[in-house]
């Protein structure tokens, strides 16, 4: 007897109307109507020939579905399905702080203190979002403070400075990256004209810094630019990320932020401040139970989202939500996807 089995790297999420299969190996997302769910279950339980007998009026549809799954390496055929267990969830991670966001507009904070606190918290990634043109001296100072701490990666989001020549700007950036490959730049406000020249290789980005620098057209005016949820732009996540999204809030879990005024928050866009960086430590804040309240708001607890087939792929947003701002369980405001339609 031959059975059909889902490869363990294919992870299922069932919504009200549709279900998704996330193929973590090939980085694909497949969405099906829920009417196919019973075929998928039937195929696994009874095998292809039996299910065709049972549902003979749908046989053409079932065969097509089966072919699709098989050719895309979502399912395989085996005589002993019990040999293949599912992937287990794990809660533990070896970085305490997954991400720290620090916003800069007019105030420059004491980065020596901030970075050493983040190092103590075993922070993995620091994202510094700069909302206005900043001199390279200031950026160099920030990077100097970063150079001695054991943090995996720093991303600096800065606007392209049109007052200097593009190559001059690029050289400065390159100089900094070559000091330390943990440094990454995301340059925004880049004109179409320049992007085209980068694309056509008229402007040459040296291969030594190629993976550490990225250019985008978007303009960034402040933290309010965040929170857009566009399912068509969702990309596949790793097994680990998928599991984490089922267990914790997909945006705020293990995240700490400092907004442009120095207020310590879960996310710079949120109302709630846990105190100013001048008087409060990140370590103290991060370890408090109240601060961690948002981490446990999984998508299963959020209205509408809990019925969405994309909930385990979504990056969520708890800062801009529908309805009452004090109710933390509402659908993200900047999401237009309807799981019931």
């Amino acid at each position: 007897m031959k059975y059909i089995k889902l490869y363990a790297y294919c992870l299922l999420t069932i919504g009200k109307k549709r279900f998704t299969i996330l193929d973590t190996l090939h980085n694909d997302i497949f969405i099906f109507e829920n009417s196919y769910l019973k075929y998928l279950e039937g195929l696994q339980k009874y095998g292809l020939s039996k299910i065709l007998e049972m549902e003979n009026h749908d046989s053409e549809q079932i065969v097509k579905f089966f072919d699709f799954l098989y050719t895309n390496k979502i399912i395989f055929i085996t005589e002993q399905p019990d040999l293949f267990p599912e992937i287990k969830q794990i809660r533990d991670t070896n970085t305490d702080v997954k991400k720290a966001i620090i916003d800069i507009r007019n105030k420059i904070f004491d980065f020596n203190t901030i970075f050493s606190q983040l190092e103590y918290l075993k922070c993995d990634l620091v994202e510094i979002r700069v909302f206005k043109s900043l001199s390279f001296d200031v950026i160099t100072n920030i990077i100097q403070s970063f150079s001695t701490v054991a943090i995996d990666k720093i991303i600096l989001l800065i606007p392209l400075n049109y007052e200097v020549d593009f190559y001059c700007f690029l050289n400065k950036v390159e100089e900094l990256i070559l000091l330390d490959y943990r440094i990454h730049f995301l340059i925004y406000n880049v004109s179409e004209h320049i992007l085209e020249k980068i694309e056509s290789k008229e402007f040459v980005i040296k291969s030594s810094i190629y993976f550490n620098i990225q250019f985008v057209k978007n303009s960034v005016t402040g933290c309010e630019n965040c929170g857009d949820i566009k399912p068509e732009k969702f990309f596949s996540s790793s097994i680990e990320e998928f599991m984490e999204k089922q267990l914790f809030n997909s945006c705020l879990n293990r995240q700490i932020s400092i907004d442009e005024n120095g207020e310590i928050k879960n996310c710079p866009s949120m109302q709630k401040s846990w105190g100013n960086i001048n008087v409060k430590s990140l370590i103290h804040t991060y370890n408090s139970k109240d601060f961690r309240f948002f981490w446990d708001i999984t998508k299963d607890k959020i209205e509408v989202c809990k019925d969405c087939e994309l909930r385990n792929l979504c990056h969520d947003c708890r800062a801009y939500t529908e309805g009452d701002a004090l109710d933390h369980y509402n659908k993200p405001l900047k999401c237009e996807y309807n799981p019931y339609a």
Binding site: F76, F84, P85, E86, I87
Partner: peptide
Amino acid sequence: EPLRCVPFD
């Protein structure tokens, strides 16, 4: 074509 690897009993 990435290798298909899955847990096994």
